[in-house]
């Protein structure tokens, strides 16, 4: 669970702010806002890639400032907008990297790790991709593999920066469906930024919207499309 307590985030001058918001497990949150409104910055702040300017963020009851860089990957996984370009890395090896926070200094995978990897592969239905090089996959397949890595990381929170950006319609639907299912079945708090409002309305009830006028991050439950557009873009 994530608790935002009167935060201001961004770089030196502050991009957006939020009052008290609680984000709970078992739920998908769609982050919507104009280009440059601070969606990626918000996700980077949550994953401690950039510091909070003021206020506090609690992750599962602990202030983010007190969670070490070693412990954070056990609480939260982050899927960036671009899949890394790598030669000669098979999908299964990439997904295995999700176990890095749990393995010893030599990185050896034990039975638990192997089981988690296998279970992430089955959850995402990417068995047929696991022996292929990631450089040979399509954008849709890469996104599934990236999510599988986040699932293998076994964190209660998953953040995804525009996971549907480079996908065709059917793959967008597939990825959103899998994320919804993952949140509900594995009791995870999933936050993803997206521009496909129509599609997202079919998959999620909760929207985190950056108000275009006040720069305030607002949590709306079951908003209409018009409402989202009015707050985020007008």
């Amino acid at each position: 669970m994530i608790a935002l307590k009167n935060i201001r985030i961004g770089y030196s001058d502050g991009l957006l702010h939020a009052e008290n918001i609680e984000l709970k497990s078992g739920t998908v949150y769609i982050l919507v806002g104009k280009n440059g409104a601070g969606k990626s910055t918000f996700l980077k702040t949550l994953s401690k890639q950039i510091p909070v300017l003021s206020g506090e963020i609690d992750i599962n009851g602990t202030s983010i400032g007190n969670i070490t860089a070693r412990e954070l990957p056990k609480e939260m996984s982050y899927v960036p907008v671009h899949f890394p370009h790598m030669d000669y890395v098979r999908s299964r090896e990439f997904i295995s990297a999700g176990r890095a926070p749990y393995t010893n200094a030599l990185g050896r995978l034990n039975e638990i790790d192997e089981n988690e990897i296998q279970s992430a592969i089955s959850t995402l239905g990417v068995e047929h991709l696991s022996d292929r090089f990631t450089s040979e996959l399509s954008d849709g397949e890469r996104q599934l593999v990236a999510i599988a890595k986040a699932v293998a990381q076994k964190t209660s929170i998953i953040l995804l920066d525009e996971p549907t950006a480079f996908l065709d319609y059917s793959n967008k639907k597939k990825v959103l469906g899998i994320l919804k299912q993952t949140a509900e079945q594995l009791d995870k708090c999933i936050i993803l930024s997206a521009h496909d409002i129509d599609l997202c309305l079919d998959f999620a009830s909760y929207f985190l919207i950056v108000d275009a006028e006040t720069k305030e991050l607002k949590l709306l439950q079951d908003p209409s499309k018009e409402e989202i557009i009015k707050v985020a873009f007008d």
Partner: peptide, 9 residues
């Protein structure tokens, strides 16, 4: 960046 997010110092 990914390496850092997986706990690498």
């Amino acid at each position: 960046n990914q390496a850092r997010l997986l706990g690498l110092n």
